[in-house]
Amino acid sequence: MNDSNNLLLELSEVARSYPEPAGRIPVLTGIDLSVKSGEWVAVTGPSGSGKTTLLNLIALLDTPDCGSIKLNGREVARLPEDRAAELRSRQIGMVFQLHHLLPQCSALENVLLPTIPAKIDGQTALERARSLLCRIGLESRMNHFPGQLSGGECQRVAVARALINSPSLLLADEPTGALDLHATDALLELLAGFHRDGMTILMVTHSERAAAAAQRRYVLGSGKLVKA
């Protein structure tokens, strides 16, 4: 368990814009955000406010126009592709709104996917994956394919996949966006469980129910992040 007083993630003056024929459209302007280790932070905001853009920047899937992003005290905003991939593999887990499970792989195989770049021993990875799937209540479904699972079950598999490499930070982009009420509660309960175990979670959502589960809330609007 990390010391909750340690800063795990720190964004400073981060900005991102996109090109247009008439000029650039700013999406994020001067974002400052700090997340301590073991915290659960939610970022809300209306559609098109740049929530997904913010998450993509933190996940090192995109590069800010300016500003700094630090993970565990190290600057990571403009890392080379290979280094960014390594960090995503070992220190960051991502859950999307649509589960994005590979339909051609079973639940167990989907969970194992991140262990390949992390070069974890096969047997160890298998044991960890089975353990995670048991924890999320899908022990008997681990060899089923996404097409044979419900939306909620798929999202839970996605969470297990995101956590297989024991990352420091879990990023969740609208994790309950495609789920009904019951599935939403089940997923939030799952996330809470991992949070209790010390997982740091940064969640982007426009669901009040999901945001309420977090310890801190921010609102993203007009390119700025404001504490709620």
């Binding site: 899937l61 290979d82 960090l87 995503r88 593999s89 499970l101 996917l113 991140p114 770049p117 995101a162």
Partner: peptide, 9 residues
């Protein structure tokens, strides 16, 4: 998805 899961290019 694979990229997000840490698969290198």
């Amino acid at each position: 998805t694979l990229t997000a899961l840490g698969w290198e290019r």
